[in-house]
Simulated assay, not measured.
Amino acid sequence: MLDRETIRSFMKVAKYSNFSKAAEVLHKTPAAISYRIKVLEDDMGTPLFTRTTRSVHLTPAGEHLLEQCQKWLDWIETMPKELKQIESGIERQVNIVINNLVYDQEAVSGLILLLNEKFPFTQINITQAVYMGVWDALLNQDYHFAIGVPGRDTIDNQVIMNYLGSINWSFVTSPDHPLTSKEGTLSESQLRQYPAINIEDTSQKINKRTGWLLRDQKEIKVPDLMTKVACHMNGSGIGFLPTKLCHDYIEQGALVERQVQWNRTPSPLSLGWRTDSKGHVTQWIIDLFEENHPTIQRFSKHLDYMTH
């Protein structure tokens, strides 16, 4: 009913609004083109063209079919290459989750560009997650690869880890915050009076964790890292930020670093991938990190210790 020749005939008639012109372009007789379109309409059970003595025009059904025809032709033409890719072991789809602490728009767009050039028929899906949400995406949401998995050791045998580096944390306040004028190391009793700014863990099935929160302290949850930074700078609350991230803000006087009674320990981050879905694309991304490719270096800009 919809073989390639029928599709081409239909599209040419739609383009030129004329059977004779379509027949001329396709090196067919007008009668042959007209007959093919009539058979198509009969098979479809609906008219695709309205006909006058001088021209033909698409009906609403014909307009819809025309939109689909180009997609079908593109699919037919690319299918041999897609099948060859699948046969060679290249994944049809790769889902990547990235920890918000190392997420970088330029790095992500650069990675997408590289992947699209190297594996043009692989569907690439990338999302961002917070804390144990990265693990949740790998174990429960069909994600194949993760950049910035919390920890150095796997929590599940389905996932292999490759240590990237660690994030050091600095306790910072606004220059105008009441704590800024306090002398010496800040105690828990002093800190507890003010809200802690945290980014909510995005995990759905694994127990959520909190970055830093004292007993009986008010917590304010924000959606992303830069909102947290802004809340520290305007004095909405207190807490820890990645040392490298807040360095320039401290130098500019927008934030003040203070010593506290209990510092936050460094957070190790790793690459992680599922053993049951590793393929050519996944290995290629791992190799990019192993060779410290310029495109992915920005993922590590907040890490204080790196494997390279």
Rank of each mutant, 00 (worst) to 15 (best):
residue 1 M to A: 13
residue 4 R to Y: 09
residue 7 I to R: 01
residue 8 R to P: 13
residue 13 V to L: 04
residue 13 V to Q: 01
residue 17 S to R: 06
residue 36 R to S: 14
residue 41 E to Y: 05
residue 41 E to R: 06
residue 53 T to K: 09
residue 54 R to W: 10
residue 60 P to I: 04
residue 68 Q to P: 04
residue 70 Q to I: 08
residue 83 L to A: 13
residue 91 E to N: 01
residue 97 V to P: 05
residue 98 I to V: 14
residue 102 V to K: 03
residue 104 D to I: 03
residue 105 Q to K: 08
residue 107 A to S: 08
residue 108 V to Q: 12
residue 121 F to C: 06
residue 122 T to P: 01
residue 125 N to W: 09
residue 128 Q to N: 07
residue 130 V to P: 00
residue 134 V to Q: 02
residue 135 W to G: 02
residue 139 L to W: 06
residue 141 Q to E: 07
residue 149 V to R: 05
residue 151 G to C: 07
residue 155 I to H: 09
residue 155 I to T: 10
residue 156 D to P: 03
residue 159 V to R: 04
residue 164 L to W: 04
residue 165 G to C: 07
residue 165 G to L: 06
residue 165 G to F: 04
residue 168 N to Y: 11
residue 170 S to Y: 10
residue 175 P to C: 09
residue 176 D to Y: 09
residue 183 E to Y: 11
residue 188 E to I: 10
residue 190 Q to E: 15
residue 190 Q to D: 15
residue 191 L to S: 07
residue 192 R to G: 12
residue 193 Q to T: 05
residue 193 Q to M: 02
residue 198 N to Y: 07
residue 198 N to I: 11
residue 198 N to A: 15
residue 199 I to W: 04
residue 199 I to G: 07
residue 208 K to I: 10
residue 211 G to D: 14
residue 215 R to Q: 11
residue 220 I to W: 08
residue 230 A to Q: 00
residue 231 C to S: 04
residue 233 M to R: 08
residue 235 G to V: 05
residue 238 I to M: 07
residue 240 F to Y: 14
residue 242 P to H: 00
residue 242 P to R: 05
residue 243 T to A: 08
residue 244 K to R: 08
residue 248 D to S: 09
residue 252 Q to P: 08
residue 252 Q to R: 12
residue 253 G to H: 06
residue 253 G to R: 02
residue 279 G to P: 00
residue 280 H to Q: 13
residue 281 V to P: 02
residue 285 I to Q: 00
residue 285 I to M: 07
residue 289 F to E: 11
residue 289 F to T: 08
residue 294 P to R: 02
residue 294 P to N: 07
residue 296 I to H: 04
residue 302 H to E: 10
residue 304 D to P: 05
